[in-house]
C-alpha cells in the first residue's frame, strides 16, 4: 500500500497521478501530488517507478483480506 509522498521532494509534475491505475493520487491546490484515495492502492508501484525524484514510497505488504476460516473462529459455524 502507498505510505507517503514527500511533499518537499515532489516537483508537481503529475506523472504519478497520470500513472496510477486506480486513481489513488491527485494534485492538491499547491500543485503537489497527494494520496486522495489511499484505500484503493493495490501496491503495483507504477507511481513510485514513474516518479522522477523518488518522492513516493509504496510498502510491499498488501491490504488484509478476510480469512477463509474466520467464520469458524467467529461463530464456530461449520457447514462442511
Amino acid at each position: 500500500m502507498i505510505r507517503f509522498i514527500n511533499a518537499e521532494l515532489c516537483i508537481g509534475c503529475g506523472t504519478c497521478v497520470e500513472n496510477c491505475p486506480l486513481d489513488t493520487l491527485r494534485m492538491n491546490d499547491e500543485g503537489k501530488a497527494y494520496i486522495a484515495y489511499g484505500d484503493d492502492c493495490h501496491s503495483c508501484y507504477l507511481c513510485e517507478l514513474a516518479c522522477p525524484v523518488g518522492a513516493i514510497f509504496v510498502h510491499p505488504f498488501k491490504k488484509p483480506f478476510p480469512s477463509p476460516f474466520s467464520h469458524l473462529k467467529e461463530g464456530g459455524e461449520d457447514n462442511a
Binding site: 483480506f65 478476510p66 480469512s67 477463509p68 476460516f69 474466520s70 467464520h71 461449520d78 457447514n79 462442511a80
Partner: peptide
C-alpha cells in the same frame, strides 16, 4: 469479500 471467502463457500463448497 466476507460472503465469498469462507472455505465452504469458495473451496470445499457445500449447499448449506
Amino acid at each position: 469479500q466476507k460472503i465469498i471467502t469462507p472455505y465452504d463457500v469458495s473451496i470445499l463448497k457445500t449447499a448449506g
